[in-house]
Design a protein around this nucleic acid. Structure first.
Length: 656
DNA sequence: CATACTTTAAACACCC
DNA sequence: TGGGTGTTTAAAGTAT
């Protein structure tokens, strides 16, 4: 039986064609121009194609000229200049000159009739490719390791384009030859499968195929298209790359730890740091650099090889880009499939719960299980992007996905009530990375009301909020709470009243709510801390390198979590959320870990992330004098009392 | 199984 | 009188 992923790929590939990769492929325009994929070209079409050809020819000539110019220019320019708009230089100018995109069919026609010289063909293809490049989300370049970014982006771009271009070209021609030989017939009703893979982006199997095509055909093509220095890149590095690609993509065991073969390079290098002798680029005595396969007896020789053969140069960077594209497309694919899954789940859930006719609670249930299942859908630790309701969000979370952290898997009280049937604990990384997601999707946040309320209050400048402000925070931060207001507002009020940790402070204008941190810390341990399985779960899920929001992570880092310090991309909201979450964790850990007085809830760093399971009855915060200067005065948050201690005076500085 | 926690629902009081 | 706010009780589900 096929593996699940394989199945889904093949299905998607063959039939529905909902492949979102279309969206970044240049040929998409071609299809959206109203052309159906049918390759059945009639006379009229042919005439049209002829026209197109003429145009294309002209364009090609122009392009050729321009391209040469640009190459010269880019070769001369200092690398720095490219930092600004790395993606745009070549593609934009090219694309602007030729707004129209040639459909696959037309392209094929052109190819078939061989009216264009190889160079011209190449330019044409490059033009197509340029459009695609242009459409690459800018975040794509965040994937670049720093050292790559310092390179001459323009020349890399050219090299990369060359590579892609040639791959494209070769596949086109290969398919063409197949078609000519009658080995491959395209039927009108059927999607133009042979050409689509290029347009749709590279689904792993197709990609492998592509590499193979290039590998097998490159000798023939070597002489045709390339007058650029980067060409040898294509031929040398691409040749015989299929196996390593295959192993990278299809064979989880090729990578060190098994699970993470499909991940960004950074992650792999990370794992290789942890296991110095299981380098992701090294396996079975062979260099697994795409296109390499050099035999290296031992790890040392591999390292030598790596440094000598795959040093930092245009070729390597170009290959790196290809690999990045592979990863990106896999991620996109995954996101798409997850979206689909969610839609399926939604559909089924709505259906199954409809008869009960209890709209609000059911909505809740289904959404929770939904989010759960969605995260479950990518079980094998793929860097899953959140199934964001709006497309633009997805890439944003992809960028930082290469970074991993332990701190993330420690979100405090998690609502698991409805999701337990599914036996998949919500990973806190999901929450973190989906923070933006919760803002836009009506998925219930897996936090308790108490946690959220506290969070809202702590986020406020004065660490105090009116009830209405709390409401607003809920609706602002979570799309879910834009509905069922009666229900959750009641719950909020209920929680405020019920929990001792929420303290009502009379104000001139009325009353505000504050958090008594000590009470909050007191309360929490019983929920989460004593749960070794949960902690274990968190840690194990860490092994999967679940991606997480960089901002969140950064704020975790800056909040005295020494482990993974990264550049901060300050999103204050996320930051506060992170700190709130962290504090919850701290409380939990502090009760599991240490019986010493590190009971200052806000400050206790994550020094003991390693679980020391001293599940002792926590000392009463009251008797823990030391750092716990936060005596419970009912109306200020002890957490921050070092900088503000007079809040109990009705200062009347109500922001908002 | 008992206990604690969370959520939901609802009744009620108070105030503007 | 009605809505917002706040308190309280009850019930049910879940975790420990």
């Amino acid at each position: 039986s096929l593996s699940e992923s394989g199945l889904s790929y093949s299905i998607q590939n063959g039939s529905s064609g909902s492949n979102h990769l279309l969206e970044c492929g240049s040929l998409r325009e071609g299809r959206s121009n109203g052309e159906t994929p049918a390759v059945d070209i009639g006379a009229a079409d042919l005439a049209h194609v002829q026209q197109q050809q003429q145009q294309a020819l002209q364009v090609a000539r122009q392009l050729l000229l321009q391209q040469q110019q640009q190459q010269q220019v880019s070769g001369l320019k200092s690398p720095k200049r490219n930092d600004k708009q790395p993606a745009l230089q070549v593609p934009v100018s090219v694309a602007m000159m030729t707004p129209q995109v040639i459909t696959p069919q037309q392209m094929q026609q052109i190819l078939q009739q061989q009216v264009l010289s190889p160079q011209q063909l190449q330019v044409l293809l490059q033009q197509q490719q340029a459009l695609m490049l242009q459409q690459w989300p800018s975040h794509f370049f965040f994937f670049l390791p720093d050292f790559l970014q310092q390179q001459q982006v323009a020349t890399q771009q050219l090299a990369f384009q060359q590579q892609l271009l040639q791959m494209q070209q070769l596949q086109q021609q290969h398919l063409l030859s197949l078609q000519r030989q009658g080995l491959l017939t395209i039927q009108p009703g059927q999607p133009a499968l042979p050409l689509q893979p290029l347009a749709q982006g590279m689904i792993p199997t197709e990609l492998q195929q592509l590499w193979k095509e290039v590998t097998s055909a490159h000798t023939a093509e070597e002489t045709t298209g390339n007058n650029h220095s980067s060409l040898d890149l294509t031929t040398t590095c691409v040749s015989s790359s299929a196996p390593s690609k295959t192993s990278l993509i299809m064979n989880p065991h090729a990578s060190t730890n098994g699970q993470l073969s499909v991940h960004t390079p950074k992650r792999e290098s990370l794992s290789h740091e942890e296991h110095p002798h299981s380098h992701p680029l090294y396996g079975h005595g062979v260099c697994k650099w795409p296109g390499c396969e050099a035999v290296c007896e031992d790890f040392q020789s591999f390292l030598k090889h790596l440094n000598s053969e795959h040093a930092l140069d245009d070729r390597s960077t170009a290959q790196c880009r290809v690999q990045m594209q592979v990863v990106q497309q896999l991620e996109l694919q995954l996101a798409k499939d997850k979206e689909r899954l969610q839609a399926m789940m939604t559909h089924l859930h709505v259906k199954s719960t409809e008869p009960k006719a209890a709209p609000q609670p059911l909505n809740l249930v289904s959404s929770v299980t939904l989010s759960k299942s969605a995260s479950e859908a990518s079980p094998q630790s793929l860097p899953h992007t959140p199934t964001t309701p709006t497309a633009p969000l997805t890439p944003v979370t992809q960028g930082p996905s290469v970074i991993t952290t332990t701190s993330m898997h420690t979100v405090g009280p998690i609502r698991r009530r409805y999701s337990d049937k599914y036996n998949v604990p919500i990973s806190s990384a999901d929450i973190a990375q989906n923070q933006e997601f919760y803002k836009n999707a009506e998925v219930r946040p897996p936090f308790t009301y108490a946690s959220l309320i506290r969070q809202a209050i702590l986020e406020s400048p004065e660490k105090q909020l009116t009830l209405n402000e709390i409401y607003n925070w809920f609706t602002r931060m979570f799309a879910y709470f834009r509905r069922n207001a009666a229900t959750w507002k009641n719950a909020v009020r209920h929680n405020l009243s019920l929990h001792k940790c929420f303290v009502r402070v009379e104000n001139v204008k009325g009353a505000v709510w504050t958090v008594d941190e000590v009470e909050f810390q007191k309360r929490r341990p019983q929920k989460i801390s004593g749960n070794p399985s949960l902690i274990k779960n968190m840690q194990s899920s860490h092994a999967y390198c679940t991606p997480l929001n960089a901002a969140l992570q950064a704020s975790m880092a800056e909040n005295s979590i020494p482990l993974y310090t990264t550049a901060s991309m300050g999103n204050p909201t996320l930051g506060n959320l992170a700190s709130a979450i962290r504090e919850e964790l701290n409380g939990a850990m502090e009760h599991t870990n240490s019986n010493e007085s590190d009971s200052s809830p806000g400050r206790s760093p994550m020094q003991a992330v390693h679980p020391v399971h001293v599940k002792e009855e926590p000392l009463d915060p009251e008797e823990a004098e030391g750092p716990l200067s936060l005596v419970t005065t009912a109306n200020h948050s002890p957490d921050f009392d070092h900088d503000r201690d007079y809040e109990d005076e009705p200062v009347n500085e109500d922001m908002e």
